[in-house]
Amino acid sequence: MKMNPWTLSVLLLLAGPLGADPDWHVEYPDSFCVVEGSTATIPCSFTHPAVHKRTGPVVERAERVVWCHSNKYCSEPNVYDSSNVRADSRFRYLGDLDGNCTLKIIKTVKRDAARYRFRFETNVEGYTGLRGVRVNVTNGEDVKVRSSVTDHVVKEGGQVTLTCTSACSFHQLDVHWYRKGHALSEKGPALHLSSLTNDDTGNYTCSLDSSKQKTSAPWSLIVVVDEGRYARRVAVPVVSVVLAVVLLLLAGLVFAKRRHAQKKASEVIQKQEVNCKQEAVGASEEVSYSTVHFKRNSSRSAPGPEHEIVYSEVVH
């Protein structure tokens, strides 16, 4: 059967390079949901066979990668083209030239809804993943916060996981979280809160972009005190205070006993000193002194009866 050149060209594009291994392949999801105004990442991977040369099989890298939509063979214009810097800047290529063809769409709009295809070209041939991935853009009005707990009240020290949900699957969407209107550092479809304290109490919301245009209704979290935990927390300082008081009383008792012993010893020493002084005074009083005074006549006449020896004083 004869085949015209145009038909042959189409078949080559569909099947890949002529005579090539069936390993020419592009893999992406069948469809992908994006919320208008959000940023989404479309996962993608590609493979191609080794080129057989005299020296053996050699793996060739892609030299050009292209993302297009509403264009079956990725001819101009394209949303991303590695060889064309004028492509739409909202579409960013996160992949490489070796097998990763992930595409990021920033701040999606309604017109971004389309079927996207990826094409890569080596120095030998090129290949387009004709199946493509269908991107659906929704308005995101049904953005909600769901919780891992059925009740809004959680005990202190517990944990909870909040999930931002919508009509789309959020595993590839950028999600911003807020508590009491203030942005949190955590990003992603799930917010994990553990070791809860009273500071975690408040209204939580999630948004699909930093402008808060697609924001969920608030979800209220109330963290209450765990009575058992509170009792243990209060008991520890009370026991510490009691032990401190007991130690102070023991220290005061020991100090008082030492002071009493020192005072008693001092009194004994003073009493001994007094006894020694009294004994010294008693010994000195036993000494006797005698004084004799003689009265004589001034004349040298012979003594007579009138001359009497007068003992004026005798002192013992």
Rank of each mutant, 00 (worst) to 15 (best):
L193P: 00
T205R: 06
A217I: 10
S185C: 01
H192A: 07
V154K: 01
Y204L: 02
L208N: 01
C206G: 08
G181S: 08
D151R: 11
K144H: 11
A217Q: 15
H171E: 15
T197F: 03
H176Q: 12
K144M: 12
K180N: 15
N203A: 13
L184T: 06
H182Q: 15
Y178K: 04
K214N: 12
A217L: 15
H192P: 04
T201H: 02
L191Y: 07
S220Q: 14
V175Q: 02
T197S: 13
V223K: 00
V143E: 01
S216Q: 07
K212E: 14
V153N: 11
D142Y: 05
Y178C: 04
D226F: 04
L184V: 08
N198W: 06
G188F: 02
N203H: 10
G188D: 01
L191D: 01
V143Q: 01
E156G: 12
S220I: 05
V149S: 10
S207F: 10
N203S: 14
I222C: 05
D200A: 12
E186V: 11
V223R: 00
S195A: 13
D151C: 03
T205I: 06
G157W: 09
E186H: 07
D199H: 11
L173Q: 09
G157C: 04
Y204H: 03
C206T: 09
L162Q: 02
K144L: 13
T205Y: 01
V160H: 03
H171D: 15
E156F: 03
I222Q: 13
H182G: 13
T150R: 14
R179I: 09
S216V: 12
R179M: 13
Q172G: 15
W177I: 05
D199F: 08
N203T: 10
Q172R: 08
L193Y: 01
P218C: 09
T161Y: 05
S148F: 15
D226R: 03
A190S: 13
S210Y: 07
H192W: 09
P218G: 05
K212I: 09
S169P: 07
R179C: 09
H176K: 10
S216N: 10
D209E: 15
C164A: 10
V143T: 12
R146Q: 13
D174F: 04
D142E: 13
G181M: 05
T201A: 04
T205F: 00
S194G: 09
D142S: 14
S148Y: 14
F170L: 13
V143K: 00
T165Y: 01
V223A: 02
I222D: 11
L193C: 03
C164E: 02
W219C: 08
K214A: 08
S195F: 10
K214P: 00
V153F: 10
E186P: 00
T205S: 07
W219Q: 09
V175S: 01
V149M: 11
V143I: 15
S207V: 12
L208D: 00
S185D: 12
F170P: 00
L184K: 06
V224T: 15
A167P: 05
G181N: 05
L173V: 09
Y178D: 06
V153R: 13
L191R: 02
A183P: 11
A190K: 09
F170I: 06
S195W: 09
D199W: 08
Q172S: 14
S148T: 14
L191F: 09
V225C: 05
V153Y: 08
V154E: 02
D209V: 02
L162W: 00
D142R: 14
L162G: 00
P218I: 08
G157F: 07
